[in-house]
Design a protein around this nucleic acid. Sequence first.
DNA 1: TTGGTAGTTATCTGTTTAGTCAAGTATTGG
DNA 2: CCAATACTTGACTAAACAGATAACTACCAA
Lengths: 204, 204
Amino acid sequence: MGRVSDGKERLMDAVRELIWTGSYGSTTIDQICDKAGVKKGSFYYFFKCKSDLAVAAIDADWQIRRVELDALFSPTTPPLERLRRFCEYSAQAQAAMKAKFGRVLGCPQFCLGSEVSTREDQLQQKVMEMLEHRRKYLESAIRDAHAQGAVIAPDAAAKSRCLFAYFEGLLTQARIQNDLGVLTEAQTGMFALLGVSVPPVSPV
Amino acid sequence: MGRVSDGKERLMDAVRELIWTGSYGSTTIDQICDKAGVKKGSFYYFFKCKSDLAVAAIDADWQIRRVELDALFSPTTPPLERLRRFCEYSAQAQAAMKAKFGRVLGCPQFCLGSEVSTREDQLQQKVMEMLEHRRKYLESAIRDAHAQGAVIAPDAAAKSRCLFAYFEGLLTQARIQNDLGVLTEAQTGMFALLGVSVPPVSPV
DNA sequence: TTGGTAGTTATCTGTTTAGTCAAGTATTGG
DNA sequence: CCAATACTTGACTAAACAGATAACTACCAA
């Protein structure tokens, strides 16, 4: 089997952080290698180009996010409570990033997608796939809420697209303004979109 | 006065199109000069660097947008009708871009902002200024609608931030997916956020 | 018509960048 | 311990890039 290495993983971690704290276009392969502590020759041993690395990094990241989101959106949690916790969790995650990097970073996929969608086909496809995955969580929560009579949303898919656009818009605004305050309105806005005037009380 | 030139304007037009159809980071000064039909020496005669040009281009563009938006949001138009027309106008503008470039391009400021906010201070400031200008139109329409009793929105500023995040999120999604269909839900979503279930009939 | 001003151009420099490659080294399974 | 494999390394090339400059040219105003 020859020797083993975590160079691939280090490269994926590096590119994720660099793109997220900066941008895809402004991130060079040299920078990625420096941050990962990997020589450029090794980079090209593992990956064909920057976009291939980015796609792999997004896939690897999704394996982690999926577990977190599965827990947040567990069907054992009341549907509107899932949404509330999702807002809360997202705001906390953004706060953590701000503490670490001095910057509100927003949604990595959404930012990347809006930057590269016109130029990088594979990356755009991958981003769309990831965003669609995320939207599904909202959709099923909304469908469950409708079934329970907690909200009126006969078309859960359409409603989830609304909520999703709103939420991603809010995250991006928080990034642009570098302001966590933007996210305090997330819950209110989400529930306004659902036609529920007041967020529900949270059961344990 | 010496000779006059529209080189400056051509450079501003070129950079706007290149950033919008691609991205800020992937747009080089050589590309801008080529597209503008201006030599690099002239570029540096007019501007200190790429970001200075971008800021100037945004300012110049705003002079045009302002007139259009002033017309759309004229106080002589019923407030909810202003919002409806704004959605319609935006969707048409996106359709025009798709026809011209084969791409849904979304909001130039929002995309640029999310790309460069962590790296280019002046540009970030300018983008924030522009986005704030645009949001104000929504705010005053909502305030007027509330005063008329057409919607219940005692905090027009907060409501406008909601609508704005939603709308920008939707535009960005349309860009990422390169799909005009995303925008068909804009009106429905906007009015859902306002707590008005059905968009009002449009008077002349 | 002329002189100063506004703008143009070709050419140059040094740096950063992506991408290649051949030779080397560590590791693992047999 | 050996040999196949998995990875590493540094040195290389060629292109793209930002930015500078000096000489040139067109235009307006007096």
